[in-house]
Amino acid sequence: MERKKKTGFARYINLVNLGVFVVVTSVSLPIYWLVISSLKQPVAIGASPPQYIPSPFSFANYQQAFSQYGFSQYFINSMIVTVAATILVLGLGSLAGYGLARLPMRGKTTIMLTLLVISLFPGIAVIPPLYLMMRTIGWLNSYQALIVPYTAFNLPFAIWILRNYFLGLPKEMEETGRIDGASPLRIYWSIILPQALPGLFTAGVFTFTACWTEFLMALTLNNSNSFRTIPVGIALFGTPFNIPYGTIFAASVVAVVPIGILVFVFRKSVVSGLTSGAVKG
């Protein structure tokens, strides 16, 4: 029996596409709700029946977030902490990853496994000792109070990604470099890193996202308003008498923008960075 060839829209209807549709919808609905709620007038947020499209559009929530709640300071703080930690993670992680991938060294497996175990450790368990340490050295309420732990907690994953990426690069290139007279650091800088950019982007995007959204340490270690980061800042918008939902939504939208841009710009590299080594070329 000959099956009828589906034409027009019908040929896109199959199980796979339906599955994709369900997943994409369930992921994007909350984001949709976040965005449109941030654009509603404060009174319209709890309206019944709900407004699916804000009317009228209002930027009052955004204005309020920046003028009344000091959101710009949080944004700057988050940027400083996140960018610094990401740069440190990539610098240290790529050096460590290169070493673990290529240099002759004992106990590589042990080191890699230790890193894996550390990265699986629940963050909340280290908060009390970390707090005490920071208090002792006087780092509470400072940028480095977050930069250093963020770097430490994101390094293991970055090292894993970068090491695997380095392992996928042909060894002969480094050997040629050695014969050409390049030192290990020079080989790392001039030959390896330029080729490892997709791996660096992947590790960078993951680290950036993790630091940008981190809440627990930011809440505990920096309780002064001038060092507060976005997640903590937004959480503290509310008072016992008033929860300004609209402002919270607006601030959240702004907070998502940098990550969105980052992922959009580097999406190709991120995917290739994650799959490198999966297929031997």
Partner: peptide
């Protein structure tokens, strides 16, 4: 030394 896969620097 010349390698089988040339080992040129792609960048």
């Amino acid at each position: 030394m010349v390698f089988q896969n040339y080992a040129l620097y792609p960048h």
